[in-house]
Amino acid sequence: MTRSVLRRLPSRILSASGALLALGAPRAFAAGMPQLDFGNPLTKWQVVWGAVIFAALYLLLSRSALPKVAFVLAERRGRIEADLDAAKLMRDQADAAIDALRRARHDAAAEANAIVDKVVAEARAQAATRNAEMNARLEAQIDAAERDVAESRARALASLPAVASDTAAALVERLLGHPVEQARLSSAVDAVLADRRAA
């Protein structure tokens, strides 16, 4: 087939092709555009081989090479999303821990306040009872002291006429030079005392 095609070629193309086919031969000048030289079987055959090569490339790319790239890209996207999810989960956990801590601190503060209030109230109550006790005891002592004083006073007042009559007896004896009758003296003193008391 090649030979019959070649036989029908114009001589200029034949010579050009012949020169090209000979290995190492200097290149001949192209007669017209080689791209439009459909007399050269290679022009058609390059399309046939090109179709085979393109089909093979397409099959290898679509079945093997491109899915591989897609797999790596999908894997990366999945990994990034998983990392983001994990980070979000951790942040939520940290937030929850901070909330728990804040709540615990708040509770502890409230409890401490309650305890302090209770202790203060207790101390106040204790102080009040102690005060009351002390007051009662002091009042009792004051009462006792007052009673003693009154008693002593009464006793002193009771002994006063005797002392007065004794003093009067001694004064009169000194003045008169002889003792006076006890009964008279006593009545005179009593009368004076009674006058005083009345005044």
């Binding site: 050009a16 090209l20 086919l21 290149r27 001949a28 000048f29 192209a30 017209g32 555009m33 080689p34 791209q35 050269n40 290679l42 022009t43 390059q46």
Partner: peptide, 10 residues
């Protein structure tokens, strides 16, 4: 020879 570069050879 500007077109020689486009020639096909086996």
């Amino acid at each position: 020879d500007a077109l020689g570069q486009f020639e096909l050879h086996p």
